[in-house]
Amino acid sequence: MTAGLEKACHRCLSQVASNAFFVFGLFAFLALPLTMAYVGVKTIDDCPAQPMIPIYLLVGGIVGSLKVMLLLYDITKMRSLLSKSIVIGDDDDDEYPWRQNAHKYQVHIVLSAFLFTWFILGNYWVFSVYAPNFIPPFHRPHEYCRKSLYVFAVFVLALSHSVLALLLCCSFCSFCIQLCTRTSARDDYGED
């Protein structure tokens, strides 16, 4: 990693780790995967029309909770490292002490890839039975899905789509701002 990029990552991680609102936001966000897991367990047999919907909520909730708790642990560790680096000063041999924990980022990548794949599968499972019967029909009792379960699964997917769109927009805007900053920083319009 180049020195400039590494320093930029250091500043970014420092800002995120020291931001209390981000930490409280993660705690608040932890409620969603925990609720997903709870609803998945409670309604495991309540959607014979597509039995993978409660399993989608259960597994997604457990892995999502694990991911958020791992993020909270990493931020707590980062705050500890930052406070030590302020106390010790910059005379330390290792300017970026979290390099030793770089393997944890691989765990984050694997969990994120799994959650993204699970999200795509969840879209298929939920919308493949779009608008199922919410009351078991007399002649086909296995072609229904509990309304609260189905509506919650659609809500989770809609929220996930919204967050994904927001992240993509923010990434695109950040890229555009960096591009404009680099372009305006050049002295193409200098005086002769």
Score class of each variant (00 low, 15 high):
Cys145Pro: 03
Cys145Tyr: 05
Cys145Arg: 00
Arg146Cys: 02
Lys147Arg: 15
Lys147Ile: 01
Lys147Asp: 01
Lys147Trp: 00
Lys147Thr: 04
Lys147Pro: 07
Ser148Cys: 10
Ser148Asp: 02
Ser148Tyr: 03
Ser148Met: 12
Leu149Met: 09
Leu149Asn: 03
Leu149Cys: 10
Leu149His: 02
Tyr150Glu: 14
Tyr150Phe: 10
Tyr150Asp: 12
Val151Thr: 10
Val151Leu: 07
Val151Glu: 04
Val151Cys: 00
Val151Trp: 03
Phe152Asn: 10
Phe152Ala: 05
Ala153Pro: 11
Ala153Gln: 01
Ala153Glu: 03
Ala153Val: 06
Ala153Gly: 11
Val154Ala: 11
Val154Met: 08
Val154Leu: 15
Val154Phe: 00
Val154Asn: 02
Phe155Arg: 08
Phe155Tyr: 09
Phe155Leu: 12
Val156Lys: 00
Val156Phe: 00
Val156Tyr: 01
Leu157Val: 06
Leu157Phe: 06
Ala158Ile: 08
Ala158Pro: 12
Ala158Met: 06
Ala158Cys: 10
Ala158Trp: 01
Ala158Glu: 05
Ala158Asn: 12
Ala158Gln: 05
Leu159Arg: 04
Leu159Ala: 05
Leu159Asn: 13
Leu159Lys: 07
Ser160Phe: 01
Ser160Gly: 15
Ser160Val: 00
Ser160Trp: 04
Ser160Asn: 10
Ser160Lys: 06
Ser160Glu: 12
His161Asp: 14
His161Gly: 13
His161Arg: 03
His161Thr: 01
Ser162Val: 15
Ser162Cys: 12
Ser162Arg: 11
Ser162Met: 13
Val163Gly: 09
Val163Arg: 03
Val163Asn: 07
Val163Ala: 02
Val163Met: 06
Leu164Trp: 08
Leu164His: 11
Ala165Val: 05
Ala165Gly: 06
Ala165Cys: 09
Ala165Met: 05
Ala165Pro: 01
Ala165Asp: 08
Ala165Phe: 10
Leu166Phe: 08
Leu166His: 07
Leu166Val: 15
Leu166Met: 14
Cys169Arg: 09
Cys169Ile: 07
Cys169Asp: 04
Cys169Asn: 05
Cys169Thr: 14
Cys170Lys: 05
Cys170Asn: 05
Cys170Gln: 08
Cys170Gly: 05
Ser171Phe: 10
Ser171Gly: 15
Ser171Asn: 11
Ser171Asp: 09
Ser171Val: 13
Phe172His: 14
Phe172Ala: 13
Phe172Pro: 00
Phe172Arg: 14
Cys173Trp: 04
Cys173Ala: 13
Cys173Gly: 06
Cys173Ser: 07
Cys173Gln: 12
Ser174Val: 02
Ser174Arg: 11
Ser174Lys: 07
Ser174Met: 00
Ser174Thr: 08
Ser174Asp: 08
Ser174His: 04
Phe175Val: 09
Phe175Trp: 15
Cys176Gly: 05
Cys176Pro: 04
Cys176His: 06
Cys176Lys: 12
